[in-house]
């Protein structure tokens, strides 16, 4: 199993996101006052400053906005992975997240901008939080 760096707590803004990840839920926020989609998680609306945010569960379907394939990373957990794809994925609900694209034969050839992907929660060798990553559909 992979052994990625875990989120570290106490950290109030991201605690609920990672707690939801434990039950395979990818969450985002919507402002109750102006309907702006807020991500990454925080306590206020980035468009109007409102403190009234609704936390919702994403369907986890999205599109690769851009990506790169990392060939060199000195951190042991990533050095052991070989080449891997980092990406920004635009979720259908309107938020963009940094992630990895997994489940491809050769990330230098099999990942594309515009590709449709679906979230999955990757269990880790150590640490309690599974990491949401995306796989082409």
């Amino acid at each position: 199993m992979p052994n990625r760096p875990q989120p570290m707590f106490p950290e109030h803004d991201t605690q609920a996101f990672w707690d939801a990840a434990k039950t395979s839920q990818l969450t985002y926020q919507v402002c109750k006052d102006c309907s702006t989609v807020v991500f990454s998680p925080r306590a206020h609306c980035t468009d109007c400053g409102s403190e009234n945010l609704d936390r919702r569960v994403s369907k986890g379907a999205g599109t690769v906005y851009t990506y790169s394939v990392v060939r060199q990373n000195r951190v042991p957990a990533f050095a052991e992975m070989g080449a891997y794809a980092v990406a920004y994925v635009d979720l259908d609900e309107g938020f963009r997240m940094l992630t990895n694209i997994v489940g491809v034969g050769d990330p230098t050839k099999d990942v594309h901008i515009g590709q449709r992907v679906q979230v999955e929660f990757e269990a880790q060798d150590s640490g309690e939080y599974p990491i949401p990553v995306f796989r082409p559909v």
Binding site: R4, P5, Q6, P7, M8, F9, P10, E11, D13, T14, F17, W18, S40, P41, R42, T66, Y67, S68, V69, V70, Q72, N73, V75, A77, F78, M81, Y84, V86, A87, Y88, M97, L98, T99, N100, I131, V133
Partner: peptide, 22 residues
């Protein structure tokens, strides 16, 4: 580690170079 941005980024191993590469 342990701030609102790092907790959403560090699990993914995006190096400084891959950030620009994107």
């Amino acid at each position: 580690a342990g701030n609102w941005q790092a907790n959403m980024e560090n699990p993914y191993g995006s190096t400084l170079i891959s950030n620009y590469a994107m």
